[in-house]
Design a protein around this nucleic acid. Structure first.
Lengths: 140, 140
DNA sequence: TATTGTTATACTCTATAACTATA
DNA sequence: TATAGTTATAGAGTATAACAATA
């Protein structure tokens, strides 16, 4: 039998869990023609009408350079609109079509969430989220 | 204040924790001229002299198509050697140079591991690993 | 027929640098 | 000076298909 010390390490377990959850969700989001990061952005706008790109970046820990093309696509597809708030930033809002996608995306994420929680023994379920929240990158 | 429901979801927390740990480790592994996946493979060979690529793939949940170029590079750099076991598979072994890299990599991973655990409140530490191990992808 | 390994390729996400325009 | 947004580009990881050689 193969001896794999990585199996006893949190870092590796997190990595594998992340790819497994992504692999789970991606095909479903794909039916909405959305990527994972698209869905995150849409959901954030759904809950924060008028949010700006820089606020999205800080909330989701994404570099603004990576948000720009996402917003561009969502805008071009008619899922969001950009409303200027001052000369350099725009408040983002969902169109009706965008709201539906955001809500469906959120439902998909919640469904994946429930599926994941169900796999975790009940006694261990409660602490996991809080534990992992402490591992977020130090925000600059 | 921004309302971010993703913050209360395991999937998102796992994702952020994974990228944070990767961002932590990558620069250190880079000093050894290794990527994360290189390190994983080297560590697995360190603990399993003579392991084959297909066994590595099953242990690390990597597609064989993605392992091939890694092995190729490690071989070309003189970190591993391939010893034929039958006509189609090779047993992999570390060279002396490779063993040192593997051990240093493992130390780096263990150090990152300790750093991560330290961030998690003591009461929550114990269950996290076991909880996450249940989220691995279903092996085909 | 199934398995091992390889090549080629595409997709997604992340990171950095350089830039414009505005505050 | 600092912030918001954009463009371009590179790096890393993952996924699939197609293939040759071997079991």
């Amino acid at each position: 039998m193969v001896q794999n010390p990585l199996n006893d390490m949190l870092g590796f377990a997190i990595r594998r869990a992340a790819t497994a959850m992504t692999a789970d969700l991606t095909p479903h989001l794909s039916e909405l023609k959305l990527r994972m990061t698209d869905a995150h952005v849409l959901i954030l706008i759904l809950h924060n009408k008028g949010i700006t790109q820089s606020e999205i970046g800080r909330s989701l820990a994404m570099a603004s350079a990576n948000i720009a093309p996402i917003i561009g696509r969502l805008d071009q597809r008619g899922l969001i609109i950009r409303i200027p708030v001052d000369g350099r930033s725009h408040g983002l809002e969902l169109t009706e079509k965008g709201r539906k996608r955001a809500e469906r995306s959120f439902a998909l994420l919640q469904s994946a969430e429930a599926g994941a929680l169900k796999k975790i023994p009940e006694a261990l379920r409660d602490g996991v989220l809080e534990a992992l929240q402490n591992l977020k990158a130090d925000t600059p």
